[in-house]
């Protein structure tokens, strides 16, 4: 399996080359184009309950798609719904990531996707939905963001504060607390909710340079309201 980011920047695509018999998991709807040798299957990752709970609790798509090169080698072009960068991570079997529900674009078949419950208060306040995806295993993981992806590297015990709506993915070796932004921070963080995550290293935190919620609110003011 080989992958490459085309048109890096705001409107990228990923080209994934699959050898005969190889397959890749993608967010349903991510497939833009593919070779005729590739079959698309919809699959319920994590079994029925897993899929149902994802759908039920995060509004996440019920199915992931599996693109399988069942009739010979081929390639597939994948793209996210929103404008923004794509990042490709290589998991080595010990690195694990938590991924915010909209941040997953695709992954090798050898990676494991688990819908994970966040602790009650975290999930509700984090604004990332009740479930986030826990990605482990070995192989390629493709993330997508709204805006640019920025990587924050944390040394052991190093701290960093991130507005929760800008989170894309973070290593499971990090830990974090959700805090209410004090009045002083509210102005400087764009989240209307005023909640931030205080991360502690070691590990990586990927953030997106735009906040989908704020963008939605900005767009809404231009939409005429019918009486």
């Amino acid at each position: 399996m080989k992958s490459e980011i085309l048109y890096p920047g705001a409107f990228p695509m990923v080209r994934v080359e699959l050898a005969a018999g190889e397959n890749i998991k993608a967010e349903s709807g991510a497939m833009v184009a593919c070779s005729p040798t590739i079959d698309i299957e919809s699959k319920m990752e994590g079994g029925f309950l897993g899929a149902l709970s994802r759908k039920f609790l995060t509004g996440e798509k019920f199915f992931f798609q599996t693109l399988r090169a069942s009739r010979g080698p081929g390639e597939a072009l994948l793209a996210p719904t929103v404008p923004g960068e794509i990042a490709i991570l290589e998991l080595d079997g010990v690195n694990e990531y938590m991924v915010q529900k909209d941040g997953f674009l695709a992954g090798a078949d050898t990676i494991l996707i688990e819908s994970q419950m966040q602790s009650m208060s975290r999930g509700l306040l984090g604004g990332e939905g009740f479930f986030i995806l826990k990605i482990s295993g070995k192989g390629m993981l493709v993330l997508n963001s709204f805006g640019a992806i920025h990587k924050i590297e944390l040394k052991p015990n190093q701290e960093y504060i991130v507005d929760n709506s800008h989170l894309v993915a973070w290593s499971t070796t990090t830990s974090y607390n959700i805090e209410k932004a004090t009045s002083g921070w509210v102005a400087s963080f764009t989240s209307g909710e005023g909640f931030v995550c205080r991360f502690r290293g070691p590990g990586l935190v990927y953030i997106q340079s735009r906040n989908p919620g704020s963008f939605g609110a900005w767009i809404r003011q231009f939409i005429p309201v019918s009486e």
Binding site: G93, N95, G203
Partner: peptide, 19 residues
Amino acid sequence: MTPNALCFGEEFPASGAAC
């Protein structure tokens, strides 16, 4: 070798060194 842990330290990458 199949790594089973991540090691962090000054000269290692922030994502940890597989070991």
